[in-house]
Design a protein around this nucleic acid. Structure first.
Length: 191
DNA sequence: CCCTGATTCGC
DNA sequence: GCGAATCAGG
């Protein structure tokens, strides 16, 4: 496939939205993430808004390439610093230094089990699992990490399970078990 | 191991 | 210009 106008448009759009190269590639189809990254660079929109928060590495370019372009002084200026797109933030009263562009967000997360609704066995197993959870952060979630939330989102005691998720499922095996319980299992154990 | 973007370089 | 291979990092 080639970089038609439309495809480049979508690329720009998604890249601006903060989508990863692989996601963009998947969306476009017919290209790999490498192709996307390559194109992004060629388009000169490599650095995403905000400057270079990442210390990155290799700041120096020891590559001694004294290639003196004799004929015609090409355009040395390329990726000029044009980092001021600045999205018009409606208002950010809250001192939110760390902004989250957009979260891939897959399936909606189920509500945390409000104790008493699920079987004691399941509850017990979840607690067990939570002790083994990788405690990954939001950014570390991928399509194959368990997205089971643990803790209170409003506090620091919040993280995601992060264990290997079942292919096609948003959670690890254990959490899939407690997340998708047939209603038959919530048999009223009233007494 | 999964993933990320960055760079290089033959085509 | 393109993008696979490779690199460097998380």
């Amino acid at each position: 496939m080639s970089w038609t106008d439309e495809r480049v448009e979508l690329l720009k759009k998604m890249w601006a939205e903060g989508q990863s190269a692989s996601q963009i590639a998947k969306e476009l189809g017919g290209v790999t993430r490498n192709a996307v990254i390559g194109k992004v660079h060629r388009l000169g929109l490599s650095n995403r808004v905000g400057g270079t928060p990442e210390p990155k590495t290799k700041a120096a370019e020891p590559a001694p390439k004294p290639e003196a372009r004799p004929a015609a002084q090409a355009k040395p200026a390329r990726a000029e610093a044009k980092a001021q797109p600045q999205r018009t933030e409606p208002a950010a009263p809250q001192p939110t230094p760390a902004r989250k562009p957009i979260i891939p967000a897959g399936q909606p997360l189920p509500p945390q089990p409000s104790a008493g609704e699920i079987s004691p066995e399941a509850l017990a197993s979840v607690r067990e699992i939570e002790k083994k959870a990788r405690r990954i952060s939001l950014m570390e979630l991928t399509e194959r990490t368990c997205k089971w939330p643990i803790g209170d989102p409003a506090t620091e005691d919040f993280w995601f399970c992060g264990l290997a998720a079942q292919p096609g499922k948003p959670y690890c095996e254990a959490h899939v078990g407690v997340a998708f319980q047939p209603m038959s299992s919530r048999r009223d154990r009233r007494r």
